[in-house]
Computed example of a mutant assay.
Amino acid sequence: MRKNCIDAVASLGIDSIMEKPVLTQVSIISLAVTGLYAAGAFVFAFSVGKSQSRINKLIIAWLVFDALIHFTLEGPFVYWSLVSTVEKSKHFTAQVWKEYALADKRWGMSDPTIVSLEILTVFITGPLAVWLIYIVLKKKPYRHFIQIVLCVCELYGGWMTFCPEWLTGSKNLKTDNFLYMWIYLVFFNGIWVVIPVLLLCQSWLEMTVTGEVKQTKVIESVTTTSVTHNYNTRSRKKME
């Protein structure tokens, strides 16, 4: 009877599900550190950017979080991938990527495409995020040009990370575990798609509105100048 019950459970696949850990010590620490990064980013944004609008404060918070992830997490990944592989490293900074590699194997084996993208992320996208924080705080006129460049870099990185894998059947992705699928793969990669798209829309609207306002001011200035000139001309003629 007991054996029959066990066989029935196994046939439903419940035993295999129970064997898959939802949270491990490494995953809990990794998620906690990510949460601290997010909290620190908000504290920085709302303290340093007191004079900024609410939307700009939120953008600064995102940029701080973005830069922290690129430098402190992806930076070590690039290093360990160039000198060896994440899988072979015993250093504590490699543990988070060993955990993520459970969802996407390429991050543990120094996949050339992934490493190439991460080099660009660490040395170009990260510094762009820091530069954009300065630009937003100082209200530089070229802010939205840099913001668009940064967003395009983020979206390109996401596309080139997953598109080649999708085209080859996603053989390196593990999608039968809730944590790996919905938290690691979907959520943590999805925010680097959703937020850059929103920032691109914001830049488009800001540049469009600013352009229309400047055009209106030019027209008003030209009209005012023309009216003033005509009035002065008529006044001189009457005096003559």
Rank of each mutant, 00 (worst) to 15 (best):
residue 142 Y to P: 01
residue 147 Q to P: 00
residue 162 F to R: 03
residue 134 Y to L: 10
residue 140 K to G: 02
residue 197 V to H: 06
residue 125 T to G: 10
residue 195 I to S: 03
residue 151 C to H: 00
residue 154 E to Q: 14
residue 168 T to S: 08
residue 163 C to F: 14
residue 157 G to F: 04
residue 124 I to Q: 04
residue 206 E to V: 04
residue 124 I to L: 10
residue 159 W to G: 02
residue 147 Q to N: 07
residue 164 P to D: 02
residue 191 I to K: 14
residue 131 W to L: 13
residue 164 P to A: 05
residue 129 A to V: 03
residue 208 T to L: 10
residue 146 I to Q: 06
residue 145 F to C: 00
residue 130 V to L: 15
residue 177 N to V: 07
residue 126 G to W: 07
residue 128 L to F: 09
residue 207 M to L: 05
residue 173 L to W: 15
residue 162 F to V: 01
residue 128 L to V: 09
residue 170 S to L: 10
residue 210 T to H: 14
residue 209 V to Y: 04
residue 158 G to W: 02
residue 145 F to E: 08
residue 166 W to D: 04
residue 156 Y to C: 08
residue 119 I to V: 15
residue 146 I to E: 00
residue 208 T to H: 11
residue 180 Y to T: 13
residue 144 H to Y: 12
residue 140 K to T: 09
residue 119 I to S: 06
residue 154 E to N: 11
residue 174 K to D: 11
residue 197 V to W: 02
residue 121 T to I: 12
residue 154 E to K: 08
residue 191 I to C: 11
residue 139 K to P: 00
residue 197 V to Q: 06
residue 202 Q to C: 10
residue 206 E to Y: 07
residue 190 G to H: 02
residue 189 N to P: 11
residue 157 G to W: 02
residue 209 V to L: 01
residue 155 L to K: 09
residue 171 K to M: 10
residue 153 C to M: 13
residue 168 T to I: 05
residue 209 V to T: 07
residue 168 T to E: 05
